[in-house]
Computed example of a mutant assay.
Amino acid sequence: MLKQFIPFTQVKQHPAIIVDSLYPKGLVLAHWRGAVNPAGTADDTSAGIVLNALEQQIPGLDVPYVSANHFDVDGFVGVWSVLNPELALQNKAVLQQMAIIGDFRELDLSLPAADQALKLVCWINTVEKENFYPPFGADDLEENEIKASVPKFEYFLAAFGEVLAHPEIFQKDWEIEYNQVLTDYQVIHGADTQITTFPEIGLVQIQTPQPVHYYALFSRTQGYDMVLSQYTQNRYELEYKYTTWVDISSRPTLPRLPLKPLAQVLQNLETTNRTWTAESVTDTGPILRLNESDLPKKQRYANPTERPIYSSNILPEELSAQVISYFQARYAGVLPKQHWTWPEIKAFK
């Protein structure tokens, strides 16, 4: 049966497969916290769940429509795969890597499919910004993203098959970001970068000279959920990865803890005229950082190279000690698990 993408506003009127979103009716294929996916389809990404469902031909795939309530790489790949199941399964490895790179930013160039996946993700990123708006860039986002994302889906669903088959034809669209990622990847995997891991709190500390593209920065973070980036001139960012906003299936995780109390600890040590700030645990990617003013979400979602990162008077060793002791104390006695609920997470103070 040929299927059709419909806007999320129409799923009340039409039976649809729901991808990378929550909805009380129909077949839901999503890694969002609280989603109930069919048995045997588990995956870290929504696109991976879709691909597993297609491979197993689970019941419920025969409805004529598919929808999602927002546009991102993972959700797009999932929707496109529902509409093009044979091609999707033929290209499963590349599509899986696209979803991982797009959602978790965990690029691993040692994997055979990763290079092509990176080119395709960079193509989407570039065309999305040039022809539409960047992620989290829609005005009045919470209200309008459902509607504003529809033209993106229509454009990319029509164009993606050709790009997947012949990415070299579209090199002008992906090569600038792609080359930047490769350059930064060498830095993060080179002698100028020092990696220190703290498995008991799920944190990886990355000390590197300058801010880099997220796909390079997070290429050293597989298996971890917090990243403490330390750059020269006492510039820092601490962030929770998207792996703790969704339900990943590959491993248990610790719950997110509020970052604002830690921001206050650092503020008490700060002597510059700037302020340590952090978003709530329900933000898709809360960042603890030194600010002059609150950054809009589209800027926080953008790469570290695309936003100002200010110098602190706090020395790197002192900042690391404060961060590590904060989480060690609050995670004491807390065991990692899967399927944390938002009420459970919000209960941590």
Score class of each variant (00 low, 15 high):
K3F: 04
F5V: 08
P7V: 03
P7M: 07
V11M: 03
V11R: 15
H14W: 12
L22V: 03
A30T: 13
H31K: 07
A35G: 12
V36E: 15
A39V: 05
T41S: 15
A42G: 12
D44S: 04
T45W: 12
A53I: 05
G60L: 04
P64G: 13
D72H: 08
G75L: 08
V79Y: 11
V82E: 13
A88W: 01
K92Q: 07
K92A: 12
A93V: 04
Q96W: 01
Q96E: 05
L111D: 15
L111V: 12
P112M: 06
A114E: 15
W123I: 04
I124P: 02
N125E: 08
N125W: 00
T126G: 01
E128T: 09
F136V: 01
E142H: 03
E142W: 05
K147V: 12
Y155P: 09
Y155N: 09
L157A: 11
A159R: 14
F160Y: 02
L164Y: 10
A165H: 07
H166V: 01
P167A: 13
I169D: 10
K172M: 11
I176E: 12
I176Q: 15
L182M: 13
T183C: 10
Q186N: 15
V187K: 08
T193Y: 02
Q194K: 14
Q194F: 01
I206G: 01
P209W: 01
V212K: 03
H213F: 13
H213Y: 15
Y215C: 08
L217V: 08
F218D: 11
R220T: 06
Q222F: 09
N234P: 15
P255Q: 12
P258Y: 06
K260Q: 11
L262H: 09
N268R: 09
N268I: 00
L269Q: 14
W276H: 07
D283K: 10
D283F: 10
G285R: 15
P286I: 06
R289S: 07
K298C: 08
S312A: 02
Q322A: 06
F327K: 04
V334N: 11
Q338L: 10
T341H: 14
F348G: 05
